[in-house]
């Protein structure tokens, strides 16, 4: 049904074969994710250090975060990861329509995630749970502002990655409409997919560490 629009892919001049081109792209993406891992990893080290110094602060602070919103967003992101793999799979089996629907779903889930994040942020800002010297809420621990510094930095950078991911998915959608992805060529889909799962991965750790165990 979707075979009508199918643009052939041409291997770039400096590669000898499609396989070489694909494997290079995939390795490049993994190496890029390695640097992302160290980037977020360093923040998790910050988290661990301050948690070590002020466990009581973290216990207190997590009560000010809504675990319900956090859990909801976790489900949303997991669902978006699922629709992402299904999108790639649709391209692999030449189902352009389902490719486009799965990509659109992923985009919608990403939007929902950011929407929820917006609600959460607004609430925190409203109550004065702001990072560092902007903090103005009441609390027991005198280090609460540090927790919220870490909270906003980590979730903020994560949110930024979601935003970049959304832009990439829009780009994929445009190319999918043009019929550029099919069983013989879907490299960009697979690469953005890897990126998207990585962003999901970061959230899988952020959720329990920030919202649940305090």
């Amino acid at each position: 049904m979707s075979m009508t629009l199918k643009k052939p892919h041409h291997v770039a001049h400096h590669f000898a074969s499609e396989a070489q081109e694909f494997e290079s792209a995939r390795l490049g993406m993994w190496i890029f994710l390695v640097q992302e891992l160290l980037f977020f990893g360093a923040l998790f080290v910050v988290y661990a250090i301050f948690r070590w110094w002020h466990p009581e602060t973290f216990m207190e602070a997590h009560q000010y975060l809504s675990w319900k919103w956090g859990a909801f967003n976790t489900v949303v992101l997991i669902a978006s990861s699922f629709t992402m793999v299904m999108a790639v799979r649709s391209a692999q089996v030449n189902q352009r329509k389902s490719l486009i629907s799965y990509l659109s779903l992923t985009l919608i889930f990403a939007g929902v995630f950011l929407g929820v994040k917006y609600i959460e942020y607004m609430e925190k800002i409203h109550h004065g749970f702001l990072p560092g010297s902007f903090f103005s809420a009441q609390g027991v621990s005198e280090y609460l502002h540090l927790f919220f510094g870490i909270y906003f930095t980590m979730t903020g950078l994560h949110g930024l990655h979601i935003l970049v991911g959304m832009a990439l998915i829009v780009w994929l959608l445009i190319r999918s409409f043009r019929g550029e992805f099919h069983s013989e060529y879907y490299t960009p889909l697979e690469m953005v997919g890897l990126y998207w799962h990585f962003v999901d991965l970061v959230w899988i750790f952020l959720f329990p560490l920030l919202y649940l165990i305090g």
Binding site: P131, G132, S133, H145, L146, T153
Partner: peptide
């Protein structure tokens, strides 16, 4: 925004 992680005056290190 004075996040405080590295600032001893705000409790950082």
């Amino acid at each position: 925004m004075g996040i405080g992680i590295f600032n001893p005056a705000l409790g950082g290190d």
